[in-house]
Nucleic acid binder design. Structure first.
Lengths: 351, 351
DNA sequence: TTTGGCACTCTCACTCCACGAGTGCCAAAC
DNA sequence: GTTTGGCACTCGTGGAGTGAGAGTGCCAAA
């Protein structure tokens, strides 16, 4: 896969060609490029270079008498080595952080706002995963009796996240009985990481069994049930999908349909985001590079966002591969930082 | 707007024409219609009738040498007077009720399943509004202290619905202090209809003021805040949007883009659903009939669904105006009934 | 190594044309 | 009076043909 060394001039021409193609959306020919570049070279010379670039698989001619278009490999090289980022518009940053601060009262709201901002500022589709809260600690457990042999379990985390779950139970419980369970368990479990609660429960169960403490046993069983039913809530918020309708470089209808199916199932997109797990900063998936053909013709720019310094989720933008990366990449980057800041309250939130 | 009386034969021809157009998607001409109808009439005769129908605005010729296509008025007449419903496939009904029963543990799940079923069975987009729960009664109020001068308020309704809200507060509250408020308020308010809680609170406030009972006063203020922040959760679940991508009768890309924008804002769709408020059963909006141009080329079939006999929401299908109404209408109808049944537990849920 | 020249290729937009489908109208038939 | 067959007419569609334009590859000269 190691390409032969690309000399400076060829790199600069490739860069110019891709920039031109991104801004114009039309295959670019040797004549155009000759005029657009600072080093004055004749079209013929440029043609020679272009032939080399094509040989290396970096550009490609749709047909004999058309100009050249970057291939996925070409985009890859461009992004990894040639791209010069554009400075962010100050007003945009202010707008972003203002909107996010305004939405920071509720976590859900924050996520949705971030997604909408991404789509709005890029004119593509914005994605934000819900924060994974593996390290959230349990603060409180409440049980509320409902009619018809059902109990509502409420798990409260220290970060304000709440999970509700209706449990079908084998007999009716009274309100005061349930309150006792809640009190007992909250005492036992408060401060535990959610992931650990199960172990703690089992340990407790052993202790309790020897006591034949049936009350506690039932409480534990209830909690187990509540944990089992870990809410499978939608873990990805997508905005601005309609921005992608009718972008001519998104290709034909069939392709667009597959893309929208991917938006609906969300699964493939989540897989893709998971792949960026290792990356520290912004990551870019170009076209079907990743083997998911629904994304042919599209690129995905992602970045992790942090809460209290810990990566808890990912956000990004999905748009056509022919995209102004020099603007979108910094935007995704800053949005991730600002979302992280808005999620980690305490420092400047009360300002 | 009263049309001149349409004789039997003209009606039957209109019906045949529309049925043919719906199944084939191509303008239908006099010759085709002459062969397709049981009463044998020559194409020439049929042409005469068609000319009348066109005069009345019920059908329309895209151009001189094309056949005829129903207008919106034609569809309207067809649906109101000529349509013969098709019997539901028994297997489909079983499938529907099975899937709904399986999802009936959580309300959110139920709504999403219904939406997906609608889209899956029709191959169009499914819509379900979240149930309005005006008459739900408050069962319990809980306050949980969070870090950084925030309090989590939890409102539990008697139907198992839970609303969470993080409230920024002016000072830190201790856990036990908040528990006192919860107890006090739950006692005062339990059993009230949510819509009435506010009044009850005000009344209570008056009583309390004279006592200078500051504790109660703070509790009341907290609750007020929590009510203010009535969760603006998404009130409409849409599924299968991608089914509409690439349906050739949906028209051009620009129109499709507007439709997808409507899906994202949801506002127009909710307005439209609200309009069906008065209707008892299935209602149909054809094309831009309602003045919303995003829906040009589309039809919306809606029906209210009931919980415990009370209308709490609407569901429906959005698809191209050229749609097999005889199948979709009964499907929407039965889905509404089955969803209502699945939502009103107690009778056959334990079966 | 770069450049100008030249023949070649391919797409795009346009025109022309024949075909088919369907209509409207009229006069004859029922 | 309604129905029908006939006929001229209209219009969209698809295929063939064409010229312009853009861009290439290659070669020989600078």
């Amino acid at each position: 896969m190691s390409l032969p060394p690309l000399n400076e001039r060829a790199q600069q021409l490739l860069k110019a060609l891709i920039e031109r193609y991104i801004s114009e959306g039309v295959p670019v020919g040797s004549r155009t490029l000759s005029q657009a570049t600072p080093f004055s070279l004749s079209p013929a010379t440029i043609r020679n270079v272009m032939a080399d670039l094509e040989m290396m698989g970096l550009i490609h001619a749709p047909h004999t008498s058309a100009g050249r278009v970057p291939t996925i490999q070409g985009y890859r090289l461009f992004i990894n080595q040639l791209l010069t980022m554009r400075n962010l518009d100050e007003a945009q940053v202010d707008f972003l952080s203002g909107e996010l601060r305004q939405a920071s009262s509720s976590r859900q709201q924050l996520i949705e706002t971030a997604s909408q901002l991404l789509s709005h500022l890029t004119r593509y589709a914005g994605l934000v995963t819900l924060p994974r809260r593996e390290h959230a600690r349990l603060t409180q457990i409440e049980f509320v009796p409902l009619s018809g042999r059902r109990v509502l379990a409420i798990l409260v985390m220290d970060d304000g996240e709440v999970q509700n779950r209706v449990l079908p139970v084998s007999r009716d419980y009274s309100s005061s009985e349930l309150r006792k369970y809640s009190a007992l368990l909250s005492e036992q479990l408060a401060g535990q990481e959610a992931a650990r609660v199960r172990e703690a429960l089992l340990a407790e169960m052993d202790k309790v069994r020897s006591d034949l403490n049936t009350l506690m046993l039932e409480a534990i069983q209830l909690t187990e049930q509540a944990l089992d039913a870990a809410t499978p809530e939608p873990d990805l918020v997508i905005s601005g999908q309609s921005n992608l309708v009718g972008l001519e470089d998104m290709g034909n209808l069939a392709r667009m349909k597959r893309l929208f199916e991917a938006f609906e199932t969300k699964r493939d997109i989540l897989h893709l985001l998971d792949q960026s797990e290792r990356a520290e900063g912004v990551q870019i998936f170009i076209g079907g590079e990743s083997g998911y053909d629904p994304f042919e013709g599209c690129s995905l720019i992602t970045a992790p966002y942090r809460e209290q310094g810990r990566v808890v989720g990912y956000l990004g933008v999905i748009g056509p591969t022919r995209m102004p990366y020099d603007r979108v990449i910094p935007l995704v980057d800053i949005t991730a930082r600002l979302l992280g800041a808005a999620m980690s309250p305490g420092l400047e939130t009360e300002g």
